[in-house]
Amino acid sequence: MYDIVFVQAWPWWVAGPLVGLYAVAFFAFARRNLGASSGFPAVLEALRGKDDPDRMDLANPDDPLALPSYPSDPAPRWRVWWLAGLLAAGALDWALGGRDGGSLDLPGFTETFRGLALWERMGILGLGGVLIGFGTRMSGGCTSGHAIFGVSQRQLPSLLATAVFFACGVATAFAIHFMVGA
């Protein structure tokens, strides 16, 4: 039982509906839209010492949960905390699952890019990271914001963006596959 919950990956028909329920619960209770990618500009704004643009506490005193400035806030501070929660979730998963943490590898990563030195592999991750940061900021969302929230809320721009980043991801993965043969 412990194995099924904490060690093996949950089957998609458990994890998928859970993510869907989470999305609706977050929107209904936290009253915000989610997206991991905009946590990064929120961290940058915090480091620059900017004030939190999310003025939830200032308006609509009869409904403390109402969001006057939503959804135009560029990088509200709560996203930093949400991102910190992701970090904690990783640590929890590592502690409970007892997998291959504390390593300079990702599962399957070295195998795919075998023959490359560590600094070259880190260069690939760094370059990929730059593309992720630039692309998500330009596009206004990533897998969570566009594919899960946007599509479920019937936002056409999100549906189109999702189609484009999936197509581009498939093409890139096959290109890598045929170049390095893994």
């Binding site: 991991a36 990618s37 990929g128 596009s139 581009c168």
Partner: peptide
């Protein structure tokens, strides 16, 4: 929106990860 999504897709496949 769409050029950004294409750039993100490239990075997603290279790193095998999205931002979260």
């Amino acid at each position: 929106t769409l050029p950004g999504a294409a750039i993100f897709g490239l990075g997603w496949a290279l790193t095998g990860t999205c931002p979260g």
